[in-house]
Every structure is written in structure tokens, then in C-alpha cells.
Simulated scan of single mutants.
Amino acid sequence: MIREFTYHITEQDIQKAPSGALLTIQGFLKSLGYSHSVIVSLKRTPQGIVKNGVWARTGDVLHASDTLQIRIEETLSSANIVPIPLPFPVVYEDADLLVINKPSGMPIHPSQGNYDNTLANAAAYYYQQKKEPFIYRCINRLDRDTTGLLILAKHSYSASLLSQMVANRDIHREYLAVVKGKTELSGVVEAPIGRKEGSTIERQVDFEHGDYARTIYRRLYCEGGYSLLSLSLDTGRTHQIRVHMNYIGHPLPGDFLYCPDYTKIRRQALHSYRLSFLHPITKEALSFTAPLPDDMRAFFTLQNIPLR
């Protein structure tokens, strides 16, 4: 994989340097979100950093009208990830990122007991078929049984930018969930979440030791003792939606931890429905949706449920 960028240095760029300081290549790259590790990698890449057609050092000074060319080259694929032909529904792909509609029952990372059934295995196979190297970089997390949209970065620079966007909450996510009972038309759950004592995975609302968590929900439809909710998160705690909905008395059916009712569904009824963000490189506004999965739609007889 090779990704090249060309920057034409302007007087405005020069003025971004700290007062009285010269603008170095390293300072310029850091201002664009290149991480330390990416810059180190560029130093080791043949023709990784070129100023005005000549190989350059990161400490070299930039002037207005200079041309800086950056070459990101990745020739190796992620080690120890076995390519397996698994579902890998690509919603969007360009030179910098992919958006995937993850199926249920698929962990995003290999772990003990999950070596060949993960999204990483599916990605490795997808790129093996294209005869292209690919380092697996999953940007946002979804639980094994949660379906829907997530982002994979295709190179180190886009990964650096996207990770920072996640930290700054610049990637906006909307979830759909089926919950038990008829909820209020809308509401906010503001309750701290912490690990349940004695469990490595289960979480609970814990006002004494938990971390601040806030979930906003809106009821889209209600039928037969179940509500379909749209939810957004102001925080990103583990199991946040599942714990908060259970806390207010509206758990997600099929949730093996918090509501093991498998009458209508065999997994927690949770779906990452929408992702909206600015493209990390082009700054184009992007927004993607993934249809409500059949096993969640089956709770309701109405075929065209309004999802907005």
C-alpha cells in the first residue's frame, strides 16, 4: 500500500509556527495530525519525506512556496491474523478508510477462543483476494453481537487522525435498539457505570465508583410490548446502552448479561445505525446508514418503520 500527499507551503502555513520560531517539516506534519510514530516511519521510508524534489530531514525548515511530498508505504500485512472467508459487507471504501456493516456473532479482534471468526480475519481475507497488504486498524468498537457500522483505517496516517477524532468525539454515532416495554418518547440517562464486582465483563450503574456516563434516547416506534429506540452517547463506556436501558427498566432482549430472554432474538437487539464524520484527509462530510437487521425488524409488524 502506497499513499502519497503533496503540500504546497503558503505564507499562512509559515505563520502557524510559534512566535519567533521557524517552521520545520516536523512541526508542519504535527500540525496536520501526523503522530510521532508515523513521522518516525516516514524517516525510515525511502523518499518518505521530500522537499522540492530532494530527500529531506524532519528538522529542515520550510519556506513559503516550498513543495513537500510525503510517501506512506506499507508492504507487510498484520501478523498472526489468518485470512478467513467471512462476511465483510463494505459500505464505503477509499484510499484512506473503509466503513463496514459488521454482522452479529463476529468479534472485532482475535482473542482467546476467537482466532478465526473475527472481523480481522475477514479483512485479512478481503485484502488477500485483492493481493494487497493490509494492517488491521479498527477505529471504533462494537460488541461481538452488536451489528452495524464501524471504521477501519487503511494506513497509519488515517489511523492517527481517526483515533484523534474518536478521542475528540468528532465521529457521531447513532444506534438503534429494541427494548422491553414502552419507554418515554425521549429521555436522558445520566448514571455512572463501573465494573460489577466479581465479573471481568459485566458492568452496572455504580454511583460510588463508576465513571460518568450519559445516554440520550428517542422512541421511534412501539408495538407488542417492545420499543424501538434511537440512541446517541455523550460518553463511550463499556456496555453503556445495555446497562443504562436495563437500569431504567427497559433492557434489551437477547442480552446474555443483562436480559437473557431469547424468545424473539438470540443476541442483544442493538445496531450501529449511522456514522457521521468529516473525512480525515479531504474534510468532506460523510454520513452512512445500515438498514435495521431482520432479527430486530421481526419484533414489529410494521414494514416501514420510520428511523428518523
Results as ranks from 00 to 15, higher is better:
224 G>E: 11
89 P>A: 00
60 D>V: 06
56 A>I: 10
245 M>H: 02
91 V>L: 09
300 F>S: 07
77 S>V: 13
22 L>G: 11
87 P>L: 08
41 S>N: 12
85 P>F: 11
284 E>Q: 13
12 Q>P: 06
87 P>W: 10
255 D>L: 01
305 I>G: 13
126 Y>L: 09
252 L>N: 00
133 P>Q: 07
28 F>Q: 05
206 D>E: 04
244 H>N: 04
233 L>A: 01
209 H>D: 14
232 S>K: 05
51 K>G: 07
55 W>D: 15
96 D>K: 12
131 K>H: 03
225 G>W: 04
143 D>P: 02
190 E>Y: 08
270 L>C: 02
187 G>C: 10
170 D>E: 12
37 S>G: 10
135 I>G: 00
306 P>D: 13
36 H>M: 10
5 F>Y: 15
306 P>F: 09
304 N>D: 15
11 E>Q: 15
276 S>L: 03
170 D>A: 04
234 D>R: 02
290 A>C: 03
186 S>H: 14
68 L>N: 11
278 L>W: 05
139 I>W: 00
265 I>R: 06
192 P>C: 04
261 D>V: 03
35 S>I: 12
308 R>Y: 15
176 L>E: 05
110 P>F: 11
176 L>K: 07
122 A>D: 09
89 P>W: 01
249 G>S: 00
15 Q>G: 08
10 T>A: 08
36 H>C: 09
230 S>I: 02
217 Y>I: 01
112 Q>I: 13
115 Y>V: 12
201 I>T: 11
125 Y>D: 12
128 Q>D: 09
145 D>N: 08
216 I>Q: 12
13 D>S: 08
19 S>D: 13
144 R>Y: 03
19 S>E: 15
109 H>I: 09
100 I>G: 02
89 P>L: 01
175 Y>P: 03
20 G>C: 10
138 C>G: 05
208 E>D: 13
127 Y>W: 11
217 Y>K: 00
2 I>R: 15
48 G>H: 11
